[in-house]
Computed example of a mutant assay.
Amino acid sequence: MFTGLLVFVIGITFFIGSYYIPLLENQALQSSLVLTVVIIPAAILGAIFYYRKSNPTYCLLLGLILFLIAGILDTLITVPVFIIQESGNHFDFFINLWFWSIGLKYVLSVWIYSILRPKQTISM
């Protein structure tokens, strides 16, 4: 799904990009904080694109599906390419509370946008 890929690319770009602008001593914490902030507008942008192109999906289900896509892409790309090189592994990545906190913000952002978004009306 293009929407899930779009949000993933935005998120991973900011997550990895934050390592190149060191503001905190703990750069892993810094990248998680950056992603925590960026995921909200990225998720909303993804929901906007989804609703422009597709039939409405139950809003919470859409958020969960998009988060599942991000999790699959994290499994296939993020962890092998970026995390394992820094002595991490899949298990530590997926039990990290930051992952689940960001995921919750992702799902809630899509859900809230889906509820509050302007509804399309059919005019005759």
Rank of each mutant, 00 (worst) to 15 (best):
I84W: 01
L73P: 00
A70C: 04
L29P: 09
F8Q: 10
K53L: 12
N55Q: 09
Y19G: 11
V81K: 02
I83E: 08
L97H: 03
Y51C: 06
I122E: 14
G88P: 01
Y50W: 01
S101C: 05
I10V: 15
P118I: 07
F2P: 15
L108N: 02
V34Q: 05
G71T: 05
E25H: 12
P41Y: 10
S18K: 04
R52Q: 14
Y50I: 06
I77L: 02
G103S: 00
Q85E: 12
T75P: 04
F94W: 06
D74F: 07
I122N: 15
F91L: 10
F2E: 15
F2G: 15
A47E: 07
N96A: 07
L116N: 11
V37I: 15
I44A: 08
L73W: 00
T78I: 05
Y19W: 12
L45M: 14
L68F: 09
K119V: 12
L76V: 14
K119T: 10
N55F: 03
I102W: 07
K119N: 04
A47S: 09
L64P: 08
G88T: 10
K105M: 14
A43K: 09
S32M: 06
I95T: 05
I10Q: 14
L97T: 00
I115L: 07
Q30M: 08
S87I: 03
F99K: 03
L35P: 10
T78Q: 07
P22N: 00
D92L: 01
V9M: 13
F99G: 00
L66C: 02
K53R: 15
Y113C: 05
L23W: 14
A42G: 12
R117Q: 12
V34L: 03
S87W: 03
I83Q: 08
F14I: 04
F14S: 01
R52C: 04
A43G: 11
I65V: 13
Y19N: 03
I65F: 09
Q27I: 10
T57R: 14
I115C: 04
I102P: 02
F8S: 13
K119Y: 08
V37C: 13
T75M: 13
N26F: 07
L66N: 11
F93M: 11
I48S: 06
D92E: 11
W100K: 08
F49E: 14
T78C: 10
G46D: 15
M124H: 13
L23V: 11
I83A: 04
A47L: 04
I122A: 13
Y50M: 04
E25D: 11
V34C: 02
Y20M: 05
I102V: 09
I83S: 05
S18M: 11
I112W: 13
I102F: 07
W111C: 02
A42D: 04
R52H: 11
T121W: 15
H90K: 07
V81A: 05
S109P: 15
T121M: 03
F93W: 14
I77S: 02
L29M: 06
W111S: 05
T78M: 02
S101V: 08
G46Q: 13
F8R: 03
S123G: 10
